[in-house]
Amino acid sequence: KELVLVLYDYQEKSPRELTVKKGDILTLLNSTNKDWWKIEVNGRQGFVPAAYLKKL
C-alpha cells in the first residue's frame, strides 16, 4: 500500500471527494490523474486534489 501525507485541509465539494485534515496519513488508491488522487479515509473512497497530498 502506498501512503500519502495531507499537506493542507481540504473540504469536500462533491460526493466524489473526501474531506481531509493537514497531517493525516492516508492510503493512496490511484494517482494516475495528475490533478486528482483517489484515497481512502475511514473506509470511504474518494478524490482529493493532488496538490494537497505528498507521497510517503
Rank of each mutant, 00 (worst) to 15 (best):
K1R: 11
K1N: 12
E2S: 14
E2V: 09
E2M: 11
L3S: 09
L3C: 06
L3D: 04
L3M: 11
V4H: 01
V4K: 00
V4A: 08
V4Y: 05
V4G: 02
V4L: 04
V4E: 00
V4N: 00
L5E: 14
L5N: 02
L5T: 06
V6Q: 01
V6T: 03
V6E: 00
V6W: 01
V6F: 00
V6G: 01
L7W: 02
L7A: 03
L7N: 02
Y8T: 10
Y8F: 13
Y8E: 15
Y8G: 08
Y8K: 11
D9K: 03
D9G: 06
D9A: 06
D9P: 06
D9F: 05
D9E: 05
D9M: 03
Y10I: 01
Y10V: 01
Y10S: 01
Y10N: 01
Y10M: 01
Q11V: 13
Q11C: 07
Q11E: 13
Q11P: 04
Q11L: 08
Q11N: 11
Q11Y: 13
Q11H: 12
Q11S: 11
E12K: 14
E12V: 13
E12W: 07
K13Q: 14
K13P: 06
S14C: 05
S14N: 14
S14D: 12
S14L: 07
S14M: 07
S14T: 11
S14W: 11
P15E: 13
P15K: 09
P15I: 07
P15D: 15
P15L: 10
R16H: 12
R16V: 13
R16D: 15
R16C: 09
R16Y: 12
R16W: 14
R16A: 15
E17Y: 05
E17S: 06
E17D: 06
E17R: 09
L18W: 04
L18D: 01
L18T: 09
L18H: 05
L18C: 08
L18M: 15
L18E: 03
L18N: 03
T19L: 04
T19E: 05
T19A: 08
T19Q: 06
V20W: 01
V20T: 03
V20Y: 04
V20A: 03
V20M: 06
V20Q: 00
V20R: 00
V20H: 02
V20N: 00
K21V: 08
K21L: 09
K21S: 12
K22V: 08
K22D: 02
K22Q: 10
K22C: 05
G23I: 00
G23P: 01
G23N: 07
G23L: 02
G23Y: 04
G23H: 05
G23S: 03
D24H: 07
D24M: 11
D24C: 05
D24N: 09
D24L: 09
D24A: 13
I25E: 03
I25N: 02
I25K: 05
I25A: 02
I25T: 07
L26M: 10
L26W: 12
T27W: 13
T27L: 14
T27V: 14
T27E: 11
T27R: 14
T27Q: 12
L28E: 01
L28M: 04
L28D: 00
L28V: 08
L28N: 01
L28Q: 01
L29N: 04
N30A: 10
N30E: 13
N30C: 07
N30G: 08
S31I: 07
S31R: 08
S31G: 14
S31N: 09
S31F: 08
T32L: 11
T32F: 12
T32W: 09
T32M: 13
T32H: 13
N33F: 08
N33C: 07
N33I: 06
N33K: 07
N33R: 10
N33T: 07
N33E: 10
N33G: 11
N33H: 15
K34T: 15
K34F: 08
D35M: 12
D35V: 14
D35S: 12
D35W: 13
D35E: 11
D35Q: 15
D35T: 10
W36E: 06
W36M: 08
W36S: 04
W36V: 04
W37F: 05
W37E: 00
W37C: 03
W37V: 02
K38N: 09
K38D: 05
K38H: 12
K38V: 15
I39Q: 00
I39M: 07
I39Y: 00
E40S: 09
E40A: 09
E40M: 11
E40H: 04
E40T: 07
V41N: 13
V41K: 13
N42I: 05
N42H: 08
N42F: 09
N42E: 13
N42D: 15
G43R: 06
G43T: 06
G43C: 06
R44I: 14
R44W: 06
R44Q: 10
R44P: 01
R44G: 05
Q45P: 12
Q45N: 10
Q45D: 11
G46T: 03
G46M: 08
F47K: 03
F47R: 04
F47L: 14
F47V: 07
F47Q: 04
F47G: 02
V48T: 02
V48Y: 01
V48E: 00
V48A: 05
V48R: 00
P49Q: 03
P49V: 02
P49L: 03
P49A: 03
P49S: 02
A50H: 04
A50C: 06
A50W: 02
A50V: 08
A51W: 15
A51I: 15
A51D: 15
A51P: 12
Y52C: 06
Y52N: 15
Y52S: 08
Y52K: 05
L53G: 01
L53C: 06
L53N: 00
L53R: 00
L53Y: 01
L53K: 00
K54H: 15
K54V: 12
K54S: 14
K55V: 11
K55N: 08
K55H: 11
K55R: 14
K55L: 14
K55P: 13
K55C: 06
L56R: 03
L56H: 06
L56M: 10
L56V: 11
